[in-house]
């Protein structure tokens, strides 16, 4: 049987309502608009360049999002688990994937609304000059796609703890890994070690059928990857994981170029991580 969009819509609507019914939600949205506004217009050189574009914001946008998106997603699971409402939701006639997709789309909806308000920056550019509409469209599509990927990172992070602060930190670290992966060889190496440790843990959990000793496997996998990286056993270690960096895939959107490969990269991250969330949710049955 396929997934039911009525259920997904109801859960996404509740998620969105819960965020927008909370004053903290509006504080975050205001901070987001202020931060992106500062990134666009308050950097040295904006007026000297004499160009009506968002090139300066593009450089810092992934870094802003690696903090803003986990702040949106930190409560998605953490709050449910803390209050015990997950027990109510997961004993309804719904599939795990429907619950995960509902929550994912709800959080993505919040981010999309924030980005909608940030369209005001285009209005400011229009007052100052004559921004290219095609370039603006591709730039905002790029921003949205970064959010598509980061929301899935934050959603997964929120599953690890019933404490929202922990969920935020784990989410921000995960997003930071993607932001910095392509920018410096050391960062690519660290991201590679983290991914190998995570993959080893997931394989262990899947094979074992429970999470016993998963922590040791994560540490073991990470240390092994670190040895491979630092001893140069696999020469292309840094280059391989550098391919996962957000910057490399986001860059084109800021130049007005929409590459299918870049779109697939962002959507691919979301699909893989939403699947992992569903997998994690199934842990309660082990």
């Amino acid at each position: 049987m396929g997934i039911d969009w009525t259920v997904i819509r109801a859960i996404a609507k509740r998620e969105l309502g819960s965020y927008l019914g909370n004053p903290a939600g509006y504080v975050f949205l205001t901070l987001f608009i202020a931060a992106t506004g500062a990134g666009a217009f308050l950097q040295p050189g904006f007026f000297a360049r004499n160009l009506a574009d968002l090139a300066l914001l593009n450089k810092v946008m992934p870094a802003i999002l690696m903090l803003f998106v986990p702040a949106v997603t930190m409560n998605v699971w953490a709050e449910e688990r803390r209050r015990g409402t997950d027990e109510l939701l997961l004993t309804m006639p719904v599939r795990d994937i429907e619950v995960v997709l509902g929550k994912y789309l709800g959080a993505l909806g919040v981010y999309t609304i924030g980005l909608g308000f940030a369209l005001a920056h285009v209005g400011v550019l229009a007052q100052l000059g004559d921004p290219d509409s095609g370039l603006m469209a591709s730039t905002y599509l790029g921003y949205w796609l970064v959010g598509v990927a980061f929301v899935s990172v934050g959603l997964l992070a929120s599953m690890f703890s019933s404490n929202a602060t922990v969920a935020f930190i784990v989410g921000a670290v995960g997003c930071a890994g993607l932001v910095f992966a392509g920018s410096a060889p050391w960062a690519s190496g660290i991201v590679g070690c983290g991914l190998i440790a995570g993959a080893a843990t997931l394989i262990w959990v899947a094979v074992q059928g429970n999470a016993d000793s998963a922590g040791y496997v994560a540490v073991g996998g990470g240390v092994l990857a670190l040895i491979v990286w630092l001893t140069g056993t696999f020469e292309s270690f840094q280059d391989t994981f550098g391919l996962l960096g957000v910057e490399r895939h986001f860059y084109g959107f800021g130049e007005g170029i929409v590459r299918l490969g870049d779109v697939v990269y962002f959507l691919g991250i979301a699909v893989v991580l939403v699947y992992l969330c569903t997998f994690m949710l199934g842990r309660r049955h082990w």
């Binding site: 259920v7 859960i11 019914g21 209050r83 027990e87």
Partner: peptide, 27 residues
């Protein structure tokens, strides 16, 4: 029908909204 221990509920919703939500989820 299940009432879990300590009756967990979405505190930001009204009873009407909560019941509507679960009615939609239950289709």
């Amino acid at each position: 029908g299940y009432l879990p221990e300590n009756g967990p509920l979405y505190l930001d919703m009204t009873p009407r909204e909560l019941l509507e939500f679960f009615a939609q989820v239950r289709k």
